[in-house]
Design a protein around this nucleic acid. Sequence first.
DNA 1: CTGAAAGCGCTTACAG
DNA 2: CTGAAAGCGCTTACAG
Lengths: 331, 331
Amino acid sequence: MGKVTIKDIAREAGVSISTVSNALNGVSVVKPETREYILEVADRLHYIPDLNGRNLKAKATKVLGLFTTSLKGPYFATLADIMFWECVKHGYELNIFVTWSEKSAITSILGKRVDGCVILSHDVDEEGAKRILELDAPTIFLDRELKGNRVSSIIFDSYKDGTTVADYFLKKGFRNFAVIQGVLDNYDAIERFRGFRDRLLKDGIVVDPEYILEGGFEREKARDAMAQFLEKGNPMPEAVFATNDLSAFGVMDALMEKGIKIPEDIEVVGVDDVEMCQWYTPNLTTIRTGYEKQGSLAVKKLVKMINGEEQGDIIKLHGQLIERESTKGRG
Amino acid sequence: MGKVTIKDIAREAGVSISTVSNALNGVSVVKPETREYILEVADRLHYIPDLNGRNLKAKATKVLGLFTTSLKGPYFATLADIMFWECVKHGYELNIFVTWSEKSAITSILGKRVDGCVILSHDVDEEGAKRILELDAPTIFLDRELKGNRVSSIIFDSYKDGTTVADYFLKKGFRNFAVIQGVLDNYDAIERFRGFRDRLLKDGIVVDPEYILEGGFEREKARDAMAQFLEKGNPMPEAVFATNDLSAFGVMDALMEKGIKIPEDIEVVGVDDVEMCQWYTPNLTTIRTGYEKQGSLAVKKLVKMINGEEQGDIIKLHGQLIERESTKGRG
DNA sequence: CTGAAAGCGCTTACAG
DNA sequence: CTGAAAGCGCTTACAG
């Protein structure tokens, strides 16, 4: 290939490499004609800057990193697409990294591959997170509460979302529930469950451990758990709180396979409001968490922290209950 | 933060930076004790190498790039996850870039951010692709046929998949069809359609342009197109070929809303074999294209091209028809 | 086995 | 407005 460098451009254009660099970077000090000519030569030679050379000297890479344990899941693509567009607006690129530990984020930040990170782990790495806080590297956590000078969290108020669902069911007069847990060490899964449980406790209602099923945030897993539950012949609860939509679909799959009617025999509520909630029959009552907002806010806040315009914060997004067919059983 | 460099380690350990570099990189020439000690010091100081310094001098970055126009779509996450694991096996990292033109891939390769690229564009950028071919940068295209010294394509034999579906319907004695087109300039969309059409033509069957609908590979768009088609009151076709599963679901949504029975009144076939094919009622007959294989093969081939072990190739993956309820109408 | 030195491609004060 | 020079953090022949 024979890589073209600023040296080649300088020779070809008959100027120094400093002038080439200044022209290329639009430093206003260069005479317009010189600049024009250099740009033309650069273009003719198909010049592409070596990012390593540039980043080595420069303080910024103008790249943000999105670190995640998995690209799957119902809303990752939407979240990332929104973040991507928000990055473009602010003059940044977005790189996505699949990784199992925060170490990779640390390496990328300290290795000067990115100027800041957004971290979305399905499994929390406490040690890595602490290290990030120590270093005070510009970071946004989407999955836990952490705050530093340049470290923020933008999370769902999942505890409150759990209480919202409990409130809703209690108002209907229900007292017997099943709960589908999510990924066991996932922040949102834990908080949604806690909120639901605590609100019920206030009214003196305890959820029987037999009625707490593991859904792992997955449709298939939830379906299996519910099918197994039904096998046991326990009395049916009046309503099910699934800690995400996917597991709610799994629960409904299993119920309907047994001929149990939703919402007449049992009501179901999920969390997330993925698109499919509107397509599934019956369509699903759920909490709209607002993950689109999370994506754009993450980038905005991160850029501000990088620029030193704002300090770290903990931002909680409030969910909203969207009522649909799956809970139109009684009053 | 006060970035730690090999200089700091050298000073702290009382050796030269060359020795530090050699120790860190496991060059066997270093005395084991020296090496151990240096590693310990590096660890103690929380040393993280500056990737720009390293990549500037080194010929390789050990990073592969996956460039795509969108993270959405039913199989992107699976494809990327598989590629990620395959990268780990080969000692590479995987970076994902959302981008609208091949220019970004070129910048990354020539900018020495990555050693090679896998490109999956929903909209084809001919100019950019040509430039990659000229440069002969290690690249795998997943969306079009291109071949160079270090440029390969790993694509579905979508033309053949189209003929397979046509064959299947013809054997059942059908002669009246509707087709749901995909994204108009998408390679697979075009080829699936061409294969289907050409096979029918051989039997003297022409698909009425009124029966060729635009589905854009999206469920909603296909649903709307089919709903609009039904409004017109044209005679119903015997079968529908949707050029991907998502649009097949949309078509079935629209048909069932009008009380049309699948497969009794009309049969439907899709392409991809996404998971949902098994969940939808009726579950969907489709072509299993084998995108998992595409992902792992892409990484393997790319690594071999980078290492100079293999030249570019055009690899076509054969699809397989999976028969399910949506075509169990007649013989 | 270890160290001094050159250089990767770029940016950035600083002199002219 | 332009250029000579230093230096970003690393690797890599080469001498010892």
